[in-house]
């Protein structure tokens, strides 16, 4: 295969692959939505003075930090039937939603910790410090988008899954490497763009904080 041939095939399949990337974003945003709601609840529980709520919030948050998302993908796939019966209602649970739930658990653990810090800042009236939650949240969204590629193992038709379909359809030795590299570049471009937006946001906010040290860039600490 010549470089021109490879480029041509990749260009042909790009719309198909990018639809897959849409799935990555959709699964990740759903995970962030679920995780943020649950995480905020946990943070409120941990901030309360009721002893049961406080320790319950702590234990649940701890469990969410320990659960590996890759294992949770398999766990939820096997444990949640596709048709769920809730109060006599038959609910269809698609596989992408199971993936979102698996990632949502990690998001909830993250939000629980970070929202707790923000809640405490708010109670002191430090609004801008509290708002630093937003760049961290965006950063975590990026981590979840990276993690969402693993949803391919349970059959979510996201970009890595589709790359495998393309490799099968093209069926040329040596094409595999270029297909995966191409997909990787899309992830990289997305990350760079989002990171730039995040830095802008963070710089705006840190200019107005009460001498709080600017959070460093070590947040991108691997998929949970």
């Amino acid at each position: 295969m010549t470089a021109a041939e490879i480029a041509k095939i990749l260009a042909e399949w790009t719309p198909y692959l990018l639809t897959g990337f849409g799935w990555n974003i959709a699964v990740s945003l759903t995970a962030m939505a679920i995780g943020t709601v649950v995480g905020l609840l946990l943070a409120v529980m941990r901030d309360s003075s009721v002893r049961g709520a406080k320790s319950g919030g702590n234990v649940l948050t701890a469990a969410m930090h320990v659960a590996p998302t890759f294992v949770m993908l398999f766990y939820l796939t096997y444990m949640i039937p596709e048709q769920l019966e809730i109060f006599g209602l038959h609910v269809h649970v698609p596989v992408w939603l199971k993936a979102s739930l698996a990632f949502g658990i990690a998001v909830a653990g993250f939000v629980s910790d970070n929202a707790l810090v923000s809640i405490r800042h708010l109670s002191k009236g430090h609004i801008h410090e509290a708002l630093l939650f937003l760049p961290s949240w965006t950063n975590y969204f990026l981590i979840i988008v990276m993690a969402s590629s693993t949803a391919s193992v349970i059959g979510v038709p996201e970009m890595v899954y589709r790359a495998r379909t393309v490799i099968g359809a093209v069926d040329q030795i040596g094409f595999l490497f270029w297909a995966y590299l191409y997909v990787m570049i899309w992830f990289l471009v997305f990350s760079i763009l989002l990171t730039m937006i995040m830095h802008l946001l963070r710089n705006r906010l840190t200019q107005r904080t009460h001498g709080l040290p600017r959070q460093d860039e070590t947040d991108l600490g691997g998929i949970p």
Partner: peptide, 21 residues
């Protein structure tokens, strides 16, 4: 930066299947 901003699953595939040959 590249390692941190790309999915590790893809890194595994590229090294094992792509470079394997």
């Amino acid at each position: 930066a590249v390692l941190r901003m790309t999915p590790p699953l893809l890194q595994l595939y590229i090294v094992f299947l792509g470079l394997g040959g």
